[in-house]
Computed example of a mutant assay.
Amino acid sequence: MTSPEIAPAEPVMDAEIETSADPRPLVPLLEALLLASEQPLTVDQLQRLLADPEPPERRRLRAALTLLGEDLSTRAVELVEVASGWRMQIRPLHAQTVARLWHEKPPRLTRALLETLAIICYQQPVTRGEVEEIRGVALSPNIIRTLLERGWIREVGVKEVPGRPTLFGTTLQLLDDLGLRSLDQLPELPAIKDPAQLEAALAGLGAGTPLALSAGREAEVSAATEATATVEAAVDAEPETVGDADAEPQPDPDPDPDPDSSSSDPSPP
């Protein structure tokens, strides 16, 4: 008596394996998610959103992001990775045209605010007193308040010295607004060794007065000088990210003059 023949198991089709590993089907889904999202999305978030029912592999998802970036290379929008994840944004080339959608121009940031932000970027964690020492002038409370309200800096602790002053550092929101993944992408700042070069750099910022600085402080001032131009250029490159709600608060009534109310610091008598 012969035993019945057992049909061999059907082999898995190569086409099915290739389809499951092909990143191309994910590209339109990623584009739809990033267009609809108001905030950048991380790879983990994208995996959860694309789970059907299993999430795609990270390698396949990153390959799909690469393909999406290539597809957008000739369009007005671009795919960028910032500190909070991936997002689609208008290319800087078209920022001036897009800004015409808003009738009111965004408020320009003062030179004093940009100097303060630059110092915090390169010297963090830093106290208000240290910022004042580097800049050589008193720091208006409105500047710190504005940076905190915009979400660009945050309190990261206190310095263990008498008075326990607050230490400030930057946030992921600042990196997102500047289009950076990390602070490592900020340009390196060469140390200014020639005092004459230092004075010229300070004069270019409108300081207008020589400052008595120790050798250790010269590098810090050079950082503030170079970083101010970097931060100002990055902020100006994205006018559509600053709306009317981001207007700089008006200074509170104060009997003392506000040294940061103008674009340049007044020279001492």
Rank of each mutant, 00 (worst) to 15 (best):
M1T: 05
T2I: 00
S3C: 02
E5F: 11
I6S: 07
A7M: 09
A7C: 07
P8V: 02
A9R: 08
P11D: 09
V12P: 06
A15W: 11
A15C: 01
E16Y: 13
E16P: 00
E18Q: 15
P23V: 01
P23W: 05
R24N: 06
V27D: 06
V27G: 10
P28G: 13
L29H: 13
L33R: 08
L35C: 11
L35D: 12
E38I: 03
P40T: 08
D44L: 15
Q45R: 09
P55C: 13
E57K: 12
R59V: 04
R60F: 06
R62F: 02
L68V: 06
G69K: 15
A76T: 14
V77Q: 04
L79Y: 06
V80T: 13
A83D: 14
W86C: 09
R87G: 08
M88E: 04
Q89M: 13
Q89G: 04
I90S: 05
R91E: 10
P92Q: 04
H94S: 05
A95G: 00
V98I: 15
V98F: 08
A99I: 11
A99Y: 10
L101P: 03
E104K: 12
P106I: 02
R108K: 08
R108N: 01
L109R: 15
L109M: 03
L109F: 01
T110L: 08
T110A: 07
A112G: 14
L113V: 05
L114Q: 01
T116Q: 11
T116V: 15
T116S: 03
T116H: 09
L117C: 10
A118W: 11
I120L: 08
I120T: 14
I120K: 11
Q124W: 13
V126K: 13
R128T: 01
R128W: 03
G129H: 07
E130M: 07
E130Y: 06
E130A: 06
E132T: 07
I134Y: 14
R135C: 01
G136D: 03
G136Q: 04
V137C: 14
A138N: 03
A138R: 10
N142F: 02
T146H: 15
T146A: 01
E149D: 10
E149M: 07
R154S: 07
G157S: 01
K159S: 08
E160S: 05
G163Q: 10
R164I: 11
R164M: 06
R164Q: 02
F168Q: 12
L174D: 10
L174R: 11
L175G: 09
L183G: 05
E188Q: 15
L189V: 15
A191S: 15
P195S: 11
A196M: 14
Q197L: 00
A200T: 09
A201Q: 13
A201T: 00
L202V: 01
A203F: 09
G206Q: 10
A207Q: 11
A212C: 05
A215Y: 04
S222D: 06
A224K: 00
A227N: 02
A234R: 13
D236A: 15
P239W: 04
P239S: 07
E240F: 05
E240L: 12
G243D: 01
G243Y: 02
D244I: 12
D244T: 08
D246P: 10
D246N: 04
D246R: 11
D246T: 04
A247K: 04
Q250R: 07
D256V: 12
P257T: 12
P257R: 01
D260L: 11
S261I: 06
S261L: 07
S262N: 13
S262Y: 00
S263H: 14
S267H: 02
